[in-house]
Design a protein around this nucleic acid. Structure first.
Length: 201
DNA sequence: AAAATGATCAAG
DNA sequence: TTGATCATTTTA
């Protein structure tokens, strides 16, 4: 069943951990797409220099982060990819979880078509093993900005909670500019997954 | 190793 | 108004 508002109105790190192994669903024109989340990163908490909400500065891009939890935050990165985030925590406190990788479940044919490159048997993990790839496969873009995860176009299906020993914690990827925050262990992965953007060591 | 590529933001 | 930046991916 579908996760409710209550799930999202918690601190980003808690939501992030609980998102592992849940099923992200996108109902598109082409059909239903879904994938099991295996890698996430938490952002937020005032002191987090890596967060788009650092210093509580609200801008055109990040304003959705100031909503209560349970909304979609998408943005363009490097001119050609989108990152898909889930807003968490209370109103007026910017926080979000970046979904970095997932294992395709439903709509795999459509996902392959959505990706710009050829996905063969050999590089199948390449379909969704990174934030830009995942967004491309799942059809996430700026049109999804602000979408309510408690409605029915984009949502998350509950699943059994994964035992703590299955989870791995590492620093977040590509935020070297963030000083101390670049070392926070706020990237969370399902260790055994083949679809991680970087293998857990 | 390095190019590709454009929305966003802060400075002016 | 503009120049620098960027929570990445691909190809080589």
């Amino acid at each position: 069943m579908k996760l409710s508002r209550k799930f999202y109105i918690r601190k980003p790190l808690e939501v992030a951990k609980d998102l592992i192994n849940k099923e992200l669903v996108h109902i598109t024109k082409q059909g239903l797409l879904s994938a099991r989340i295996v890698e996430v990163e938490a952002y937020g908490g005032g002191k987090d220099l890596a967060s788009h909400g650092f210093g509580n500065k609200k801008t055109e891009r990040n304003k959705i982060m100031f909503n209560k939890g349970g909304y979609v935050y998408t943005y363009m990165i490097y001119g050609m990819y989108y990152c898909f985030n889930i807003v968490t925590y209370k109103k007026d406190i910017p926080a979000a979880v970046l979904i970095r990788a997932a294992e395709p479940i439903e709509g795999i044919g459509i996902m392959k078509k959505n990706r710009k490159i050829k996905i063969k048997e050999k590089n199948f993990i390449n379909l969704t093993n990174g934030p830009g790839k995942l967004s491309q496969a799942m059809g996430f873009n700026l049109k999804c900005y602000g979408e309510d995860l408690c409605s029915n176009r984009i949502y998350i299906r509950d699943s059994d909670k994964i035992p703590e020993y299955e989870l791995g914690y590492t620093p977040r990827i590509n935020i070297d500019y963030a000083g101390d925050a670049s070392q926070y262990p706020w990237r969370i992965v399902l260790k055994k997954s083949k679809f991680l953007s970087k293998k857990f060591v």
